[in-house]
Computed example of a mutant assay.
Amino acid sequence: MPLENSNRRRSPELLIRCLISCFTGTITQLALIFVPHFFPLPSLLSQFIISASVFSITLGIFQYIRVLLKIRASAPAFVLFHIIFIWVVYLSVISQAVSLLLNILLNMELAILLIGFLRILTSDPGFVCQDPASLMKASISEDRQHLEDLSSKAEGISLEISNEATSISSRRTRYCRSCKAYVMGFDHHCPGFGNCIGQKNYRLFLLLLAGFITAEASYAMLSYHWINKHLLLKQSSSKIRYNLVVSTMNFLMLQVLWQVVFFAWHVYCVCFNIRTEEWINWRRYPEFHVIIHPSLDQSFSDIRFRNPYSKGIFCNVKDFLLG
C-alpha cells in the first residue's frame, strides 16, 4: 500500500472525523424515531416515504454544515455506527419476540457483516507500488492479439483501433484520485467502505454488499413481524420501542432499495467484464476506442465504445469467480 495512503489512514484528525460521523448518525436516528411519533399514520408505506424524506433532509443539512465549517467526516465510521446501532436495537427489543433459530441466524448475519466490513476496510484492492511509467510496458503480443480479435468482430463497418491502445493489460491499472495511487482492476473508490474496490477485493465487495442486503432485509421482516404483534400496546415504554423499531425498519428498507440497484449494476459489470470507472470515463482509455472512418456523406470520423476485455458472459463470470 502506498505510504501516502497509509498516512492518510493514520491521520490524527481521524478520531475527530469518526466522532462527527457518530454524532451525525445519532441525530439521524433520532430524527427518524420522531417520524412515527409525530406522524402516527395507519400506513407503514406513508411512514416510510416520510422517513426517506427526513433522512435525506437531515443528511443534507449536515452536509451543508460540514461544507460551511470546512470539516470532514468519516463515511466508514457512519456505516459502522449504524451496524452497531441496529444490532443493539435488535438485541434489546426485537429479539425478545423472535424464535431461537431466527435469533441465531440474524446474529450470525450481523456478525459476519461486521467482520466483512472491517476486512474490506483494511484490504488491499491491488495497489501498485512500482513506477507508473513501467505500467505501460506489458505483453505487446498479447495486446496485439486482443486488437486483432476486436477488429475481426466488426463486420461491415470501416473502423480502426486507436493507435494509442498499445498495452491493454497494463492500461487496466487505473489511478484513484482519493487514494492517490494506481490500482489494478480499479472499479471505484467506495466512501462507505473507506477503500478502493479493485482486482484483489472486488469479490469481497460483492459478497459484503449481498450480506448487507440479506441482513437488512431479514431485520426488516422481523421488525414487521414485531410491529404487527405489538401494534395494540398502549404503555409509554411500548410506544418508545414501537417508534424505535419502525424507524430502524424504515431506515434499513431505504438502504436495501439503493443497495439492490447498486448490486445489480455490479453483477452487470461482472457479466460483461467492465468496471464502473471504465464505463463512465471510457473516452480516457484508448483501448475502448473504435474509430469509425467517415463515409462519403460525412466530413469527420467518430469514436465508438467497444469492450476488448469481454469474452462472453459465461467466460467473464468464470474468470471472475476463479481469477
Rank of each mutant, 00 (worst) to 15 (best):
V98P: 00
Q29W: 09
E142Y: 14
S99W: 10
N307H: 06
T58E: 06
L19M: 13
H189R: 00
V245I: 04
S56W: 14
F34A: 09
N163T: 04
L232P: 04
F186R: 01
S92W: 04
P76N: 03
L231E: 10
I112W: 08
S21M: 01
N250A: 11
C190R: 02
R284E: 12
R72G: 00
R172Y: 04
S162N: 14
I157F: 14
Q298R: 08
F34I: 05
Y64S: 14
G116Y: 00
K239N: 07
R283C: 03
H225Y: 06
S301I: 10
F320T: 13
V256S: 08
L19I: 09
L41V: 02
S151I: 14
C271W: 00
I292K: 02
R275N: 01
L206G: 02
V98D: 02
H37D: 12
L209S: 06
K239G: 02
A138N: 11
L207W: 06
S152G: 05
L207M: 10
M253P: 01
S299K: 12
L3S: 14
A73S: 13
I86T: 05
C179I: 01
L207Q: 05
S141I: 14
G126N: 01
F62R: 03
I168P: 01
N7K: 14
W279R: 08
A220M: 03
V183M: 03
L15D: 08
P36I: 00
V88H: 06
L150M: 15
R119S: 15
M221W: 12
S236I: 05
E4W: 08
S6N: 15
V67R: 15
R241K: 09
C22P: 00
A31M: 11
L296P: 09
S141H: 14
F62M: 07
L91F: 10
L14A: 14
Q63W: 09
Y242L: 02
L44V: 07
L159G: 07
H266W: 00
C179S: 09
P294I: 07
D124S: 05
I274N: 04
S141D: 15
I50R: 03
K229D: 06
F320Q: 11
L101W: 10
R174T: 09
F78H: 02
K137T: 07
